[in-house]
Design a protein around this nucleic acid. Structure first.
Lengths: 225, 225
DNA sequence: GTCTATAATTAGATAGAC
DNA sequence: GTCTATCTAATTATAGAC
């Protein structure tokens, strides 16, 4: 079969197991993000990284297993990006320090949403209808994230720093407002002529979210990233 | 036409042309909203309204034409829902009256997003990648809407009523924050146990958006709908 | 206008050579 | 592990009887 010398015409190379797995994962994220689970094609996922469609069933069990693995991978990246933003225990935490930390978390989330729009694209696709995938993703990955935000928001509201918004509502206002420009970056470019992934755009966006959600916090605009 | 005696075994009825067209349009909106264009199946669109798949190609030219017709239909409904919210010409308009009108527009938009989540579901699906569909939808339907918001927002910012946010950013913050709970209503129910389409939820949501986006406007909470 | 039957294409998954 | 070939099922669209 294919030992390098064998394939003068084909550029396709034999890659290490971890390399091809990660390449397929990242390609899958792009495809699932752009087309949703049903619209995604395993053939085009493979082609994007110069692999063959059956390699997906070899390295993963099925299209569904590939989806699960890629979502795990992506939430792992989110966890790294947000690691340590909020204190682990809130008892006795100074509300102003918590507010500053929350503002930092908003900035990091905006940056993550811009760099990995696939996360919110996939969440938006899956959230439109009940399914086993939605249930799994919500309970496994979203709930811990949600609970952390709820606990911090409660402290900030009691302290009068946060806008007077119910926690459940705040969560969707925040996620929707923070992610839509990156989820729909192609539309933003068509409609406004600007690129939301420019650092000035991201900074202005994050500063705006901090300002409207934490009106009690003295304004300290800063760049994202 | 429909004579009952013709179909003793089959419940399926011969419907008036306009009826079956509208039934297919509304079914298409649900399907396109939930699965995106590529993931949507014309068979399941037809089945949802007890029609046969070839009827789609009879009443519409193709899957693509069905998509276009359903998006036209939906933006028509949005236009009706928002008719007259903002004054046609802004020159000489009192800023406080405009702010009250803008707040009313936010409330109507929230209500529309809750009642027709398909609109923002479809926009979010299409906005993730460049395509002829995205270009057409943006230029035909989104731009007039966008331009109206930009013009009003400029007046409100100059008057110091609006939050100090750039118009392009405001647009996506507003649309994202106003629509996500309804776009992802199944996720909201799983995660929070609450139904975002309850009138109390919608009212609290709309009031929160008005409060954070128009901080200069004296707070006058009111129910939506 | 509706319905059955079917054409043409594409999907995910599997078998087996290498 | 990779690749070709192929299976089964599902897709959009069309033809023609009624």
């Amino acid at each position: 079969m294919e030992r390098k010398g064998d394939v003068p015409n084909k550029v396709r190379l034999r890659r290490a197991r971890a390399d091809i797995r990660e390449a397929l994962l990242e390609s899958a994220l792009v495809e699932f993000g752009a087309k949703g689970f049903d619209g995604a094609s395993t053939r085009s996922i493979a082609q994007r990284v110069e692999a063959h469609q059956p390699q997906i069933n070899y390295h993963f069990e099925s299209k569904e297993a590939l989806w699960t693995a890629s979502v795990d991978y992506l939430f792992g990246l989110l966890g790294e990006a947000l690691e340590g933003v909020l204190p682990a225990a809130l008892a006795g935490v100074d509300a102003w320090e918590l507010a500053a930390a929350f503002a930092g978390g908003i900035r990091r989330f905006v940056q993550f949403a811009a760099e990995h729009p696939e996360l919110n694209q996939i969440m938006v696709h899956e959230g439109t209808a009940n399914s086993a995938r939605l249930e799994w993703m919500t309970e496994t990955h979203v709930r811990p994230f949600f609970d952390g935000i709820m606990a911090a928001w409660h402290v900030l509201r009691v302290a009068g720093i946060a806008a007077p918004i119910d926690g459940g509502i705040l969560y969707y206002v925040l996620i929707g407002a923070a992610s839509l420009p990156y989820v729909n970056a192609p539309e933003v470019r068509l409609l406004t002529g600007r690129n939301p992934r420019d650092s000035e755009w991201m900074s202005a966006h994050a500063n705006a979210l901090v300002a409207i959600l934490l009106p009690g916090l003295p304004r300290t605009d800063r760049p994202v990233g």
